[in-house]
């Protein structure tokens, strides 16, 4: 039970910026994620947390160190490691149903099987009635639920989530956090969830990984020993949230280069 599903060992990542200087994005990150664990990585923007997640998905190469999925190095994307992106990840020309069944379609399943899978997972995220809708007809929160259904429909062993609720309004975000925990009840999965919301991390995670600003390294890993469903008014909850915020605060007091985050070289190349 306690063998790590995903394991990062001394992972480094540097980019070559346009003007020829190297940018250290991730610095010596080591982390073990065990079966069915819910990990949240929280840190200021520009700390390389998304880059780390992309490396774990096999979408980005490592500069140093290794990331292992069940003792095999991750070098390219694989079906066992799913990922949910922040937004605009649904294919806008496909119906919700055909978006959810993209994974089985790529795997070469028949139309009937694909539709059955889509029905099952849309029901799981409570969007059974929207199978024939187009993505642009849905609200932002519904689109992210479809994105989650699509990732799960591929039956991944680990689910990586890159600020999946980051673009949603505060109320919808809270609803989706609750929804995600409910889905996880039905559907045991190991989750690594990147966010810049401390409250979100404390609400969701078994363990919160706090990162420092660039170059991103792990500052500390905090277990969240509050039983679910968690109550935001619980003093323990508030204490933990405040402690993490405090940590991030002292870190960002140093000259921050947060502005550059949105244009990580890898993202800007196309």
């Amino acid at each position: 039970m306690n063998t790590p599903v995903l394991s990062a060992r001394n992972v480094h990542k540097h980019f070559l910026a346009g003007h020829g200087e190297t940018i250290q994005a991730v610095n010596d990150v080591s982390l073990d994620v065990v079966e069915n664990e819910f990990i949240c990585i929280v840190g200021p923007s520009g700390c390389g947390k998304s880059t780390f997640l992309r490396m774990a998905a096999g979408l980005e190469s490592l500069s140093q160190g290794e990331i292992l999925y069940r003792n095999q190095p991750v070098r390219a994307p694989r079906r066992e490691i799913g990922m949910v992106f922040q937004e605009y990840s649904l294919l806008p020309w496909r119906t919700v149903r055909d978006n959810v069944s993209l994974g089985p379609e790529i795997a070469g399943r028949s139309r009937a099987e694909r539709d059955a899978v889509a029905r099952e997972y849309l029901a799981l995220v409570n969007l059974g009635d929207f199978a024939s809708a187009m993505p642009h007809e849905l609200s932002g929160g519904m689109r992210q639920r479809v994105a989650i259904a699509r990732a799960l429909a591929n039956k991944p062993d680990v689910l990586l989530m890159d600020e999946p609720f980051g673009a949603l309004d505060a109320h919808t975000r809270i609803l989706l956090q609750r929804e995600l925990l409910r889905i996880r009840e039905h559907h045991k999965t190991t989750i690594v969830f990147v966010t810049h919301g401390v409250d979100e991390a404390v609400y969701l995670a078994d363990r919160v990984v706090v990162m420092t600003p660039r170059p991103g390294r792990i500052r500390t890993v905090l277990p969240v020993d509050i039983p679910r469903p968690r109550d935001r008014a619980d003093p323990a909850y508030a204490r933990l949230t405040a402690a993490i915020l405090d940590m991030l605060d002292t870190e960002t007091a140093a000259p921050a280069t947060a502005k550059e985050e949105e244009s990580c070289p890898s993202q800007a190349s196309m």
């Binding site: 992309r54 998905a57 096999g58 979408l59 994307p77 694989r78 079906r79 490691i81 799913g82 990922m83 992106f85 922040q86 937004e87 605009y88 990840s89 294919l91 020309w93 993209l102 994974g103 379609e105 790529i106 795997a107 994105a147 699509r150 990732a151 591929n154 990586l160 993202q267 196309m270």
Partner: peptide
Amino acid sequence: VNRTLIDSARVLGATEKDIFLKILLPA
């Protein structure tokens, strides 16, 4: 073509051919 669309197909296990036919051309 939005990079995220390509990435999201790749994490689902898409091959180059899948990406070409199912993502790039329609997009």
